[in-house]
Simulated scan of single mutants.
Amino acid sequence: MHGPLMSEMTWPEVDAAARAGAVALWSVGATEQHGPHLPLSVDHLIPLELSLRIARRLHVVIPPPQAFGNRSRPLSGGGPSFPGTTSLRAGTLVQVVRDVVGQLAAGGFRSIAVLNWHGENVNLLHEGIELAREAGDLERPDGGGPVRVMLIERVFNAFSEAEMAFLFEDAREGFPGWPAEHAAIMETSLMLALRPDLVRRELIADDRAAVRPFYDLTPTPPEHVAASGVLAEASRASVAKGERLAALIVDRLTAAISEALDPPAAP
């Protein structure tokens, strides 16, 4: 049987995997600028690569990632002013989530896990799942009861500050907060570990907005957005940090999916 990428499987193979109890592990991200050194695909590529590592341990089928997310915000992603950043309205994303999880359930999956990697998607994914449930789209077609849907909106909620301290121990300003970590130490380290071929190492830079308020202002003043799109110290990233972080995330997600959805081991 081919797998775990659904896009490379035939329908009988997907059907067999669903009947065997495989979890549909779907990533939702964004197409958003990540500075001059990282591609626009970071927010859907990182969870896809992590999902492939989870697939070495658990029987999962990985549907094509959702590549467009809710609109980028200036203080956490740079906003829409950077060429290439392409976003969906909130209502559109909610309906996409509703349709996809409903169709995965209709296709026979008894368990679905949704893995988010874009802060602006938070709450919208939950709304889409709830709309699918309210519409009756999350009932098993064999009459076996409701399909279980697990939502991981903020993967770093699974970790304590102490567990993540290694990422920022050599940063001049310490931990800047997750919104300011956009295209910085964490994401650059993960990309160096997971997809080093896509990192423009010679363009890695440290940057930050001249002014970083605790509020959003519309229209956004130019001084609220870093010119490069990097919001902190990307130069402190490393392959070692990325591999350590990826291993921690995969361990934690594998344990959580096993506990909540009880999938079989990887075939």
Rank of each mutant, 00 (worst) to 15 (best):
V60K: 02
V94A: 09
L38M: 07
R57L: 12
A106M: 06
A106N: 02
P47M: 06
S87P: 06
A105W: 00
P83K: 09
P74H: 14
G77A: 15
F68K: 07
Q66G: 12
E32Q: 11
G29S: 08
L48E: 05
T92K: 06
L45C: 02
R89A: 12
V97G: 10
L38W: 05
H37K: 04
Q95M: 11
L45S: 06
P74E: 14
S51M: 03
Q66L: 14
A67L: 10
R89D: 13
L75Q: 15
D99H: 08
P83W: 15
L88M: 15
S76N: 15
Q95W: 06
R98E: 15
L58K: 05
S41K: 04
V101T: 02
R56Q: 13
Q103H: 09
L88N: 06
S27G: 15
S76E: 14
R71I: 14
W26D: 00
Q103K: 12
P64E: 07
L48D: 01
S41D: 03
D43Q: 02
G78Y: 14
S81E: 15
L93C: 10
E49G: 03
E32P: 11
L93I: 05
P64V: 03
L50W: 03
I46C: 00
Q66W: 02
S76P: 07
P39Q: 03
R89Q: 07
S72K: 07
V96L: 10
H37L: 03
L48S: 00
P47E: 02
G79V: 14
R56T: 13
L104V: 00
S72D: 15
P39G: 02
A106K: 04
L93W: 08
V100A: 08
G29K: 09
L38F: 10
W26M: 00
F68L: 14
A67K: 08
G78P: 15
L52Q: 12
V61P: 00
P63G: 07
T92E: 08
T85D: 09
H37N: 01
R71D: 08
V100Q: 07
P63L: 07
L50N: 02
A105L: 04
A67Y: 10
I46Q: 01
V28T: 13
L93A: 08
L25W: 12
A67Q: 11
V100C: 02
V28D: 03
R57I: 07
R73L: 15
V101W: 00
A55Q: 10
P39C: 06
P47F: 02
L93V: 09
N70G: 10
L52E: 09
S81Q: 15
L52W: 04
G35N: 05
R56M: 09
T92A: 11
Q103M: 05
G69W: 08
G84I: 11
G35P: 07
S76I: 13
